[in-house]
Design a protein around this nucleic acid. Structure first.
Lengths: 228, 228
DNA sequence: GGGGTTATTATGTGCAGACATATTACCAAA
DNA sequence: TTTGGTAATATGTCTGCACATAATAACCCC
């Protein structure tokens, strides 16, 4: 066989062997050292290839016991979550947004729990309608912890983008679900009441401090794509 | 400053600096060599840390121009997509499934287009109801290209799992959306007609050959989670 | 034979050096 | 001024070696 040259070639070759079922799901593949000898390269190069495959969920690796082909297809997909403006502009449409209302209030228990707030603590709430070519594309309901921010947000730019540039890197979780549109949501999104909406919920922390919790209700037809 | 030891420490330190806005979005950070000198480690170690961060979308790297903090918050989330049985069992429920019907037919144009089929080509169609503690949790509508399979699938195991173990590694795309339940879906999922369903659509190829296209309609309440 | 300690083993990580490659900046020739 | 070639530079990758760490196998003593 012709020897692979770089770690990408080795990754491809390993995938081929799994695909050809030379190495079956659950089976242990040769050690890094054996593969390095076979491919005529350093162990580090094999290691790099196998690490990538393990990261993609194709292989499972454990010290001492070795590397085996993943049995359970817990396929890992990487999901790109752009800001809405970029998503709209990427479709060749013109982006716009409209602030619906803004208030200071005690968030509903679900939001308070997600952010880990003491009961009764007040937050700022912004509701924004995102527009593509003038038509509503998503309704944003954001609870924001202004106390942790160095300066108040400006009114002339999308709160989403301003936040990203201002509070820098943060951790958070995201969840996706489907919900029927409430009458108010239906009105704002110009869709029939009860229509199935794609919901994105994101909660973000900067270190220990809860920053914001957002609920995005996407207009019908929205689709989130990725490749495996 | 106390020097980080491993590449994970370096990654954490870089994240801290981005978080503290020492390095702002869009700004170029020091070269690998400079960082290696500062941290008192080899360039390879810095490289490993920065590569991970670039993979996570935090940094953007280009040869010669250097490494900069990502401006566009295209956050990459990794999504684990387990088989339904594991998802159900992970919730502590008992998994079951029921084959609703099976037929050979010409798929609708949308499915044929996704799989890249010649018009009029026939496929096998399986519709399966997945159960958690006896209650419906998802409705699976699968179009399968039996021609490319080495052997016919057995009836006593989930088609999904059998496929994964049989055709080995494949690639495909996934999309998520929200749709209102049709009367038939509502009946099968024991939910009111028009309820908002979370839809997962997956198309899979093995090399060039289209294998299968699946549409999963999840019962209301389903939620897909991930962390950033 | 049972239970706990020790040795072995495969992966995980690190280092120093080298060359490859993409990209930019710069300078000279048309 | 524009164009084309060249040098400089930062990342990308590889090698060969070393030691760390986790998990298993082997062993020994009671």
């Amino acid at each position: 066989m012709k020897p692979p040259q770089g770690w990408e070639e080795i990754r491809a070759e390993v995938l081929r062997r799994i695909d050809r079922r030379d190495w079956r799901p659950g089976a242990t593949i040769p050690t890094e050292e054996q593969l390095a000898a076979e491919f005529g390269c350093a162990r580090a190069t094999v290691s790099r290839a196998l690490r990538e495959l393990a990261g993609a969920g194709v292989l499972e690796r454990r010290r001492k016991s070795g590397t085996r082909v993943a049995t359970h297809p817990v396929r890992k997909a990487t999901l790109d979550i752009p800001v809405i403006r970029l998503e709209v502009e990427g479709r060749g449409q013109t982006y716009g947004f409209r602030l619906i209302d803004r208030a200071t209030a005690v968030p509903p228990p679900a939001v308070a729990a997600r952010l880990g707030l003491a009961p009764g603590q007040r937050l700022d709430r912004f509701r924004t309608l995102h527009l593509a070519d003038g038509r509503p594309t998503a309704l944003e309901d954001r609870w924001l912890n202004l106390a942790v921010l160095p300066e108040p947000p400006p009114a002339d730019v999308s709160l989403n983008e301003w936040l990203v540039k201002t509070v820098a890197y943060t951790y958070g979780d995201i969840s996706f679900s489907a919900e029927a549109a409430t009458p108010e949501e239906a009105l704002l999104l110009e869709t029939p009441a009860g229509a199935a909406l794609f919901i994105t919920e994101r909660t973000t922390w900067a270190g220990e401090a809860p920053i914001t919790s957002v609920r995005l209700a996407h207009a019908p037809g929205y689709r989130l794509r990725t490749v495996v």
